[in-house]
């Protein structure tokens, strides 16, 4: 009798393991290939998301008020610095407007409707964050009903923070650049060097020890120096051109000495996200 019950337990454990791996494999495959999860999962996520908003609202509100108080302390200094910047900004803005207008006229002349730089922005609030150490993932409160599509790039503040990994009706999951899984942070980017050359490449990972984005396998002869700006190149997919990723922190030879490896300082603080922007391309 003892032996029988032991065998039964073993069978249960093995069946559970097999079912678990099967479910995991299926859901990873769906996540990588399909544009939306199965309808049941979407429906469930929408309901859970709605309930979560009720809980998350006071928590995020509390967070906002606490940070408001701490920010009040260094407001004066910040104000002084910002005043200087504002006067410069007004000039840049006017110039930007003129250039945008000119750009539009020129595009009309050559009958070019949408180029790689065109995108519209959907702003969304972060509801919650996945309590897990390997999935740096946040849930935002806009979904397919607001026009969010899988793989769209997500920005916060001045720079790129991640991509949309899963879309439900009213919420979606955003995988941050800091996530180191196989598909998280492969953005096509380009760097304009000080000499004016453009270097294209793909982001390849994140180094959590220093908080830097890694870009490997660059086979270029042009010299990339510290402080060069990295922006998305708009090649190959739904990412528009010209989203700011960060600045080059270090350029070293790769592990085998054949190519160049870059470390990039992200443009925004990736650990503190409250409001994000989803960039929607018109293609």
């Amino acid at each position: 009798m003892q032996k029988f019950s032991f065998n039964r337990r073993l069978v249960i454990i093995i069946v559970c393991l097999i079912v678990s791996f099967a479910l995991m494999t299926v859901s990873v495959a769906i996540r990588n290939k399909k544009s939306t999860p199965p309808l049941i999962q979407q429906f469930g996520n929408d309901i859970v998301g709605l309930t979560d908003r009720v809980v998350a609202l006071p928590a995020n509100g509390l967070n906002g008020s606490v940070s408001a108080i701490s920010e009040l302390l260094n407001t004066y200094q910040e104000n002084q610095q910002l005043k200087k910047q504002v006067s410069e900004l007004a000039q840049t803005k006017v110039r930007d407007q003129t250039l945008a207008k000119e750009n539009k006229q020129l595009k009309q002349q050559i009958k070019l409707n949408d180029s790689l730089t065109d995108y519209t922005a959907i702003s969304a609030a972060v509801i919650t964050r996945t309590p897990s150490s390997w999935q740096n993932q946040v849930v935002i409160n806009k979904g397919s009903s607001a026009g969010v599509v899988k793989n769209m790039p997500v920005m916060s503040g001045s720079g790129l923070v991640g991509r949309v990994a899963e879309v439900n009706k009213t919420n979606s999951k955003v995988e941050l650049i800091t996530d180191n899984n196989d598909a998280a942070n492969r953005f096509a980017v380009s760097i304009t060097t000080k000499a004016g050359k453009t270097v294209n490449g793909v982001l390849s990972g994140y180094k959590s020890a220093t908080g830097q984005i890694v870009m490997d396998n660059l086979t270029t002869k042009s010299k990339i120096s510290k402080g060069d700006k990295v922006v998305t190149s708009g090649l190959g997919g739904v990412t528009p051109k010209g989203l700011f990723v960060g600045t080059v922190a270090q350029s070293v030879g790769s592990d085998y000495g054949l190519s160049t490896k870059l470390y990039i300082t992200p443009a925004t603080d990736l650990s503190d996200l409250n409001i994000v922007t989803v960039a929607v391309t018109k293609q």
């Binding site: 979560d52 998350a56 928590a59 967070n63 919650t128 964050r129 996945t130 020890a209 650990s271 503190d272």
Partner: peptide, 25 residues
């Protein structure tokens, strides 16, 4: 369950301070 997520979001700067990560359970 929801508070787990909210704690992770609100204190993300402290809890997901790479490389060491604290996960709320």
């Amino acid at each position: 369950l929801f508070i787990d997520g909210s704690i992770s979001q609100v204190f993300s700067r402290q809890m997901f301070n790479a490389p060491s990560v604290m996960v709320s359970h």
